[in-house]
Design a protein around this nucleic acid. Sequence first.
DNA 1: TCGTTTTTGATAGTTACTTTCTTTTCATGG
DNA 2: CCATGAAAAGAAAGTAACTATCAAAAACGA
Lengths: 205, 205
Amino acid sequence: MSTPPLERSLEQRLGLRERKKLKTRRSIQEHALRLFQEQGYDATTVEQIAEAAEVSPSTFFRYFPTKEDTVLTDEYDALIVDAIRAQPPELPPMEALRNVMREMVSDMVAADRKRMLDRTRLMMSVPALRSRQWDQTKVTQQAILESLADRVGRPASDFELQAFAAAVIAVWETAVLGWVEADGKTDIVELLDRGVDFLIAGCPL
Amino acid sequence: MSTPPLERSLEQRLGLRERKKLKTRRSIQEHALRLFQEQGYDATTVEQIAEAAEVSPSTFFRYFPTKEDTVLTDEYDALIVDAIRAQPPELPPMEALRNVMREMVSDMVAADRKRMLDRTRLMMSVPALRSRQWDQTKVTQQAILESLADRVGRPASDFELQAFAAAVIAVWETAVLGWVEADGKTDIVELLDRGVDFLIAGCPL
DNA sequence: TCGTTTTTGATAGTTACTTTCTTTTCATGG
DNA sequence: CCATGAAAAGAAAGTAACTATCAAAAACGA
């Protein structure tokens, strides 16, 4: 009799089909980002990306609905929601959010520092990407708003709650922007902290 | 001898060419907005707009670089900068901004209430427009940042100053959104005031 | 290995924009 | 009032991002 292995790597258990899909997706994305760096976003056509990744243009659009989506990401929203839920309930909302943002940003920078810098710079310099990134940030803001509504027991339609979420996102954006403009040499966690403190203090200038 | 008129209307003194250009521009924009309302933004082609306005597609693109630009506007930034300059210097920055936002929003709503509601709704419901609108808002934020830097004598690179501008814009957006979602039935100036008060109070929840 | 399902590729649109060139329309000095 | 130069409009052809459809190929399950 054969003993099934207790644990197999995620990739293995996925089956050939799924593994190939992941590989194709990664390949397209990597080639896209490389080409964008080398020759610029606008100068790079989807056809070139497809050719570099050795797939047909049709396949490219199966994996990424638009060229922009090879650069953008929305994988963090779910993590943020979880992280907010995981904060001790007695913590005031602003402190809970401070912790969450610290966690997220530390993890992201630790995992992917250079890649994140490059990507953010690209997103900020290409108008089409920048615009869509702002829109994506609003999705994050909405996720935070809803988590917070749960937490404090107010409806998501509450104006002050909405202003809170908007202000926190504003500080987050400002910190990330500052970090990128300093080429990643500033401490982004410290910037975040200063931003939160600034809000708590009533935005004194 | 003939006495030249002391004052002529702006349109008249402009000359036939300029007058026609203004008229063409307005016509294109009006037909575009009407068609968007009637059949939706995506379902309306530039060709249709051009035909409705009785110009060639080439001419359409001479007046509006993109289809999106028929909906978007950037005419307010300069007004905001002026309004900030016009505020008494002894006023704290947040109060100066409060006044400016009040003025702007009252004027805009007074002049164009229904049109503004319709346009904002359109911008928020069409992803491509929404994204570009956020980007435009960032331009406004930058204008505010620079005016404020002047006013308080700090560099525009100052992090707290940036956070201030971002937070004020966040409140502005939140108020406008709330106003539109309530179909213009809420008092937008009151929303703005509540937002500013909320910031001053340190975002208490 | 065979039938089924999933993934891929090829092809032919559509539409937003660009470029270039020609034609029309306005302005102006004589 | 007209001839001449300049500005605006139109016409035509091209590019590139998508979309829809359908046939071929690869993986899966038995």
